[in-house]
């Protein structure tokens, strides 16, 4: 406790020291401070690096893979179920082996990552946009509107996300657009609750009263004043939720209700290999599984560090 106090005053003093210098060379913006604190953890730095590599690999998949696994002209059925390290018929090494249809698994995984990440991130962004607006207006408007909206959120959150998504895809059918819709519905409520929580705290602060007494419009107060101060928890929840969304999509696809064979995400690849597991051809399921695991773990590690850095109550 003593440390906390002095640390704060030390921080305040550090700020003051800067203002006293007239050089103004290094203005410490909140962003710079955030970056330097984030990079303090090696684990988080490693996770961020891994995640960056994964995203780059997914984006540039066509340039770094030996085949396009969904171009039938490049896939030879005779290459089917080859173990890792085999020579393909078309003369390249399949380091991770091939699947039942003769596709190179390394290539299939990178293409699968593209779809998994795209679905996770797209649904995350849409869900954030919806959840943020709902949560912010609920906190700002208050009253019956808030009660009504937050009861819906509570109701939604009382069902497991997987169940909600499963019911929706059962209703809507397969397809990348439908799975994104299902993931958005399953997730928006988390964001709404997060934003409302922090917006309620911010709304009661004096700078909001000051903005009101300056005659600024409600929209401006909500989006220009309150929202930027609610972003920190939203980013944290957003990161972790994106990992959830990717896992959820993989689950649905594995169960055969998610993405179709024509748009094979990591979940579809795992499902495809599953039938060969018992015959000892482990690689068809295991390698996509490891890719999924690494992706989700690195997102979560980054998210954890974001939470530590952005949460003022955890400040050391």
């Amino acid at each position: 406790m003593t440390v906390e106090i002095t640390q704060q005053s030390a921080d305040a003093d550090a700020g003051l020291a800067i203002t006293q210098e007239e050089t103004a060379a290094a203005i410490e913006t909140p962003f710079r401070r955030f970056v330097s604190e984030f990079l303090e953890s090696r684990l988080a730095l490693g996770a961020l690096f891994t995640l960056g590599a994964i995203i780059l690999a997914a984006i540039f998949a066509p340039f770094i893979t030996p085949q396009d696994p969904y171009d039938l002209a490049q896939v030879d059925i005779l290459d089917g179920r080859l173990p890792p390290g085999s020579e393909a018929f078309t003369e390249y090494t399949m380091w991770l082996g091939s699947d039942g249809a003769g596709r190179d698994l390394y290539s299939a995984i990178l293409y699968g990552l593209r779809i998994s990440l795209a679905v996770g991130i797209t649904s995350g962004i849409i869900a954030i946009a919806i959840g943020m607006s709902v949560g912010l207006s609920a906190a700002y408007i208050g009253g019956r509107f808030e009660t009504f909206v937050m009861r819906i959120v509570d109701l939604q959150l009382s069902f497991p996300a997987a169940l909600v998504a499963l019911m929706l895809v059962a209703l809507l059918g397969k397809g990348i657009d439908k799975i994104i819709l299902a993931l958005v519905v399953a997730q928006w409520a988390y964001y709404a609750r997060t934003v409302r929580g922090s917006a309620l705290v911010e709304r009661s602060k004096e700078y909001v009263e000051a903005a009101a007494s300056l005659g600024l419009s409600h929209a401006r107060i909500m989006f220009r004043h309150i929202l930027p101060n609610c972003l920190a928890p939203l980013i944290v929840v957003g990161t972790i939720q994106t990992a959830h969304a990717i896992a959820l999509e993989a689950t649905l696809s594995f169960l055969g209700v998610g993405l179709p064979q024509t748009e094979p995400s990591l979940g579809v690849l795992i499902a495809n290999g599953f039938e060969y597991m018992l015959s000892g051809k482990y690689w068809i399921s295991v390698f996509p599984g490891i890719a999924l695991l690494i992706t989700i773990v690195s997102i979560n590690l980054v998210g954890d560090q974001l939470r530590d850095v952005l949460n003022p109550r955890l400040k050391r």
Binding site: T2, V3, I5
Partner: peptide, 21 residues
């Protein structure tokens, strides 16, 4: 005033100074 060290003096007597102090 704040930052004059008055509270830290008190905490020092009580042996309640924690790292980094």
């Amino acid at each position: 005033e704040s930052g004059s060290g008055k509270s830290i003096t008190g905490f020092s007597v009580l042996g309640l100074i924690d790292p980094p102090g």
